[in-house]
Amino acid sequence: MTDFIDLFHYSFFQNALMAALLTSLIAGIVGAYIVARRSVFISGGITHASFGGIGLAYYLGWPPFLGAAAFAILSALGIEWGTQRMKIREDSSIAILWSLGMAIGIIAVFMTPGYTPNLMGFLFGDILTVNPADLIILAIWSLILLAGVIVFYRPVLYTAFDSEFAQVSGLPVKFIRYMTAITVAISIVLAIKVMGIILVLSLFTIPQATANLFYKDLRDIMWLSVLVAVGGSILGLVTAYFLDIPSGASIIFTLTLIYAITKCIKTILLFKS
């Protein structure tokens, strides 16, 4: 027990905890939107394409986050543009950007002289190396996102639900689509620090699946997803520390466990009634 309390005194763990909290807030909200719009596959494409930006940033000696954000935003807009304007099948344009991004990243890393540190951290997440600057960025983005949800919830909801009708009713549908695509891209890139490219989507989908067991309204799914994500990631983080296992994987395990238990309880309750 003292071990457990001591843990919260370490500044690296406090940082990790804050990062998990803020990332869960971002992922809970944005993930609810992604799942509602059925764009999980698009998000996978954006996530993996961002690896190209990370590799290129390493090669050029730039901050990796900037490279990842640039690639993520460009691929998000590219997918919107490719399907809307060029009439490319959406799944094809996603697959092209997904693998092209990874390929650029691999080539860039290969060409970078010497050892590339932290590359594993980008693939699998490295929450214990989060520094105060990362936290400030996460906090600022959380605030922007919360303000955005409060002000633009309805037009975004209406556009996601029925974009043709939204267009007829006079909403700037194209603008809303591009803005939400950029928001999703930035949110994913920020969450990569905690969860890593390969695992990040879990935080955007598993809490939402849990919330969806109880609620059928986007607003409710958003806040319950945030709660589940916060609970799951803190529990996962603590477990990771004590079992000495990678934190990202531990968080996914916890989130899935929460989903499975909740689903079982719900099924039993339904069966009884």
């Binding site: 509602a36 029925d162 009713s169 006079g170």
Partner: peptide, 14 residues
């Protein structure tokens, strides 16, 4: 899609 009846109707306000 997770949207309730009232929200759908209100979306008509454009």
């Amino acid at each position: 899609f997770p949207i309730n009846v009232l929200d759908v109707i209100l979306s008509g306000l454009g």
